[in-house]
């Protein structure tokens, strides 16, 4: 019998601690599959964030270096400059990347660091219990915006991928989702392409992944997937934001 579903080589045989229906699990899986398919497990180095994915090093069977909250792009820069022939990626949440780590992310992109950033946008601070993230939608209820996010008081949802797309140092940015099998396939293609670009020395790439957080959204996994489609994608449309090789 042909095996159609198996654990990617680049994932350890450890059960994820993520909540049921969490987008992180899917994102991990498609990153691991991309690593396997490109055959770079031996020479990739990952930088997990502070956030729900903080112990990603327990899951990925690759070398990893923990980063302080938000500094993933600076840490990845340090590694990549010392080891330019390795593939280096940071894995960051929306709070990590687009709030506390804004400067590090922006300037790594602006320098055109040849690294890949996986940006998990779940519109909340997952790990700390569902506070407002920079990406939280207007009207969205979070523990720090109990009446819903107000533009007046709390500012607007940040479109970080679009901002980075403006920079000449950025080579490839795409927004994907992991809420349907078709979107997962597309997301994986994007991640793989981003790694491939890095291997070809193209430059800075970032893949944003709209990622369901049923726990903090207070929804069932199925509802969460639907919410990504019906609400989140209206604010954050999927697609290629910049691809300088195209």
């Amino acid at each position: 019998m042909k095996k159609v579903f198996s654990r990617p080589k680049s994932l350890k045989n450890t059960a994820f601690h993520y909540c049921g229906g969490c987008g992180h699990s899917i994102a991990h899986r498609l990153i691991a599959e991309s690593i396997d398919e490109l055959d770079i497990q031996d020479r990739i180095i990952g930088v997990p964030p502070a956030g729900c994915a903080v112990i990603a090093y327990n899951y990925f069977d690759i070398d990893m270096l923990e980063s302080p909250h938000g500094r993933g792009c600076a840490v990845a820069t340090g590694i990549k400059r010392v080891l330019p022939d390795r593939v280096v990626f940071s894995y960051q949440g929306d709070g990590d990347l687009a709030a506390i780590g804004t400067a590090e992310t922006f300037h790594a992109a602006n320098r055109g660091e040849n690294i890949t950033v996986i940006f998990i946008n779940n519109a909340v601070y997952g790990m700390t219990g569902g506070q407002m993230a920079p990406t939280t939608l207007l009207g969205q209820v979070s523990t720090t915006t109990p009446p819903g996010r107000s533009a007046l008081l709390d500012g607007h949802p940040v479109h970080f991928s679009e901002i980075l797309g403006q920079l000449p140092g950025t080579m490839y940015v795409e927004r994907c989702a992991v809420n349907t099998p078709a979107n997962v396939m597309k997301a994986k293609k994007a991640v793989k392409k981003a790694f491939q670009y890095q291997m070809d020395n193209v430059g800075f790439s970032l893949i944003e992944i709209l990622s369901q957080c049923p726990t903090n959204w207070k929804m069932s996994p199925v509802e969460a997937c639907r919410w990504v489609n019906e609400v989140m994608m209206k604010e954050y449309p999927l697609g290629i934001i910049k691809d300088s090789k195209r």
Binding site: R71, A74, V75, T77, G78, R81, V82, E104
Partner: peptide
């Protein structure tokens, strides 16, 4: 902040 974190990455590498 960025500088010391770059050093962190470089030292690990």
């Amino acid at each position: 902040i960025a500088a010391i974190n770059m050093v962190l990455g470089a030292a690990a590498a």
